[in-house]
Simulated assay, not measured.
Amino acid sequence: MTKIDTIIFDLGGVLIDWNPEYVFLDAFNGDKEKMKWFLENICTMQWNENQDAGYPTKQATNDLVSQFPEYKKYIKMYYGEWEHMLRGEISGTVKILEALINSNNYKVIALTNWSSETFPIAQKHFEFLTWFQGIVVSGNEKTRKPFKEIYEITLNRFNINPEKALFIDDNIRNIKAANTLKIKGIHFKNPEQLQNELTTYNIFIK
């Protein structure tokens, strides 16, 4: 097996617990069905990913308000209350990240789908974001995972050999896209599973 020399982390869902439900469950007075319908039909993940690829959040909000004026209050909450969607760090993964960095055996990079407008808020909250040798933020690049371009940007910017790189993401779609560029991947489910799967690449966390 080719020795891994670079580890690329996704952020949301891997290192950071981010979820719109933390805002909208309260907004809909605990009615999970109403919340689920709203997030699947109005402020959808596909809509959010458009902003992750660089579309302005204010324009995106106005677009939806024009389309669904009866939901104006809730649509405006999405980015208005965005900071409250950040619950905290996923501590088990942060410990793994710290161990990998302290080992000095790997180049450790982050590749995240994140709006350039909201990412500075996360940077204020999470000190571990300063540990990476580099972070590629989709909103700054005007593209996002799973599109090939953002992986190529990451590889080229940090002089990464894809066959010696390992990518960790909670979305299997993004892992499969990385695989097409010969980047190995781990589909993240929880820190314990991640630590176990790292051993298959001869990466051991002390």
Rank of each mutant, 00 (worst) to 15 (best):
Q193N: 10
Q46L: 13
L155K: 05
V108L: 07
L15H: 03
F158R: 06
N171R: 12
K36A: 11
I205E: 01
F128M: 07
V94E: 08
Y22K: 15
L194E: 00
W114D: 00
I90G: 01
T199M: 12
F68V: 05
N190P: 00
T112W: 11
E98Y: 07
K34N: 06
Y55L: 04
K176L: 14
Y22H: 13
A178Y: 02
D63T: 10
P69R: 09
L64P: 00
C43M: 14
K206S: 07
T44P: 04
D17V: 09
N171V: 15
Y22S: 02
C43L: 11
L166K: 07
I150A: 03
G30Y: 15
C43H: 11
F24H: 06
T200P: 02
M45C: 10
Q123R: 12
Q51V: 11
T57N: 07
S103R: 12
E40L: 14
G88N: 04
L198K: 01
I4G: 00
I75M: 10
G139M: 06
N19W: 12
H125I: 10
I109S: 00
N161K: 15
F9M: 01
G30E: 09
I183M: 05
K142C: 10
E163H: 14
D169L: 12
G30K: 13
E49K: 11
E163R: 11
I90A: 02
N159A: 09
N190C: 04
E21A: 13
N196Y: 15
L39A: 05
Y71D: 00
D26H: 08
E49R: 12
K107S: 03
F38E: 01
D26F: 08
E40A: 12
A27R: 12
I101Y: 05
P56N: 11
P56T: 10
A178P: 00
I168F: 09
K36W: 15
I153K: 08
P56W: 08
A99Q: 05
N41H: 15
G13Y: 12
N29M: 07
P120R: 07
K58N: 10
Y201Q: 04
G30A: 11
F204N: 12
T143K: 08
P20S: 09
Y78D: 01
W131L: 14
D169Y: 10
V23S: 06
H84R: 14
T180F: 10
S115Y: 07
W18F: 15
I101A: 03
N161A: 12
K58R: 11
V137M: 08
T154A: 13
K76I: 01
K142N: 14
K58M: 09
A122G: 03
D170L: 13
N50L: 15
T180D: 10
D52N: 14
R157H: 08
I4A: 04
E98V: 05
K206V: 06
P162I: 07
K124R: 13
I203Q: 03
E98W: 09
